Amino acid sequence: MTEHRDDLGDENTSTEPTADLKAEPTEHSTDGYQRAHLKSKNAKKKALIKKVGIALAVVVVLGVIAYGLFKSNQHSEPQVTTFQGQMQMQQTSIAAKVPGRIAKIFVTEGDVIEAGDQLIEMDSPEINAKVNQARAAKQAAQSQLEKAENGARPQEIAQARAAWQANKAAADLAASTYKRVNRLYQEGLMTQQRRDEAYTKYLATQDETEAARLQYDLALEGTRSEDESAAAAQVSQADAALEEALAAKDEANLVSPISGIVDDVIVNVGEVVGQGVPLLTLVDNDDQWVVLNVTEDYLNYFTIGQEFTGTIPALTSPSSEQPYTMQFRVYTSSVLSDFATWRPTNNDDGFDVRTFEIKARPTDPDSRVRSGMSVLIKMDTTQSTSQLTKSTE
């Protein structure tokens, strides 16, 4: 039994070193594996850093190329400048030339009217009284003129002739009486006083006969030309007064002087208005133009006669839903006041830049356009004026 334990002990003694020998190589192999793993990890990390660096370099190169292409395209693309203008239309204010009370208003805002259409009727009793007075004065003057032109009536001529004949008979009787009394006076049968009385009566009847004859001649000849001229002048004066009164009455019934659209009705029925007070405003939709302000460095693009295209955002094209465009032609340009001048703050900023007001009419006016609508003009300011002229032609 002892030997057996010894053997076992020997076996145990002999086996323990073997176990130690087996464990020692395992530790060495683990350390190697870790070192290999670290080397592999470092290698992968270096490869990843290398790839990232290459990618960054590629991105930088591509960015530089893209920036160069962008700058080259930016220089090659046209430089578009937008100008904003405003549509305007001819406005006409209708005012009363005579005072009165508004009786009727025949139009409303937005109505399309023609020249000669009645707009407002005014009630003025003073004007009606003046018309009646002028007509009565004309009738009186006309009667005087007719009397002067027609002369004396036949009855008046016969009456004047009868008076002349009666005075002539009385004058003949007075002459015969004077002759008899004078003969008796010479014979001493009649007193001198009786003779003088007969002579005085003879002279008086002679004068009365001559006056009657002149009245008869005047009746035959008719009215003098001067009297006829004076009567005709009175008729003309009465006609002028009547025309003035009728003109005032016509002005009380206001009519439109132009064709267009009623833009604003200022008064109401029943109001009393004075002379020269505006009552309503009309606009002529055929007389349109656009107004825009540009600095003088862009003035060469808006010379007289130059044409350009403008967009009116408030309107749409009849054939599509796109904004409506119109063709305009410049007809005038004028410099604005000094307050619209841009002035540099120092000498390095350049010179003063004046602002000009440009007006252009549409080549084909549109009745849908209203005053105040905005007009946008986009223009390639890199083109020269000659290129613009060729493009418009």
Rank of each mutant, 00 (worst) to 15 (best):
Q155D: 12
Q275I: 03
A232P: 11
P365A: 07
G151W: 09
E210N: 12
Q34V: 13
D286R: 09
D6C: 07
Q383E: 08
T345N: 15
Q74V: 01
L119Y: 03
L315M: 08
D217M: 03
R135D: 05
E149W: 03
A66D: 05
D297P: 08
T392M: 13
I94Q: 13
E357N: 06
T15Q: 15
S319N: 14
A247R: 14
D6K: 14
E121V: 03
Q91L: 14
E357T: 05
T30R: 09
T309K: 04
P99N: 06
R354A: 11
G305D: 02
K201P: 00
K130H: 01
Q234N: 15
A241M: 06
G270F: 04
S229A: 15
R161E: 02
A43M: 10
W164E: 09
Q275F: 00
Q84V: 11
S384P: 08
F339N: 13
N300W: 11
L336T: 00
A204C: 01
G68W: 05
H4R: 12
A174E: 02
K22I: 15
K51P: 06
N42P: 02
T295W: 11
Y67F: 11
G260P: 06
I102C: 08
G372A: 12
A57W: 00
V52D: 14
T332V: 14
S317I: 02
N268G: 10
V265S: 04
D366R: 00
S259C: 05
K359N: 12
P313C: 08
I261E: 00
N128W: 00
P125T: 00
A171G: 05
T26N: 01
L38M: 13
A95E: 14
I312H: 03
N150G: 04
D352E: 15
Q237D: 12
E244G: 10
A232C: 12
A55K: 00
E77V: 08
Q88M: 10
I304S: 02
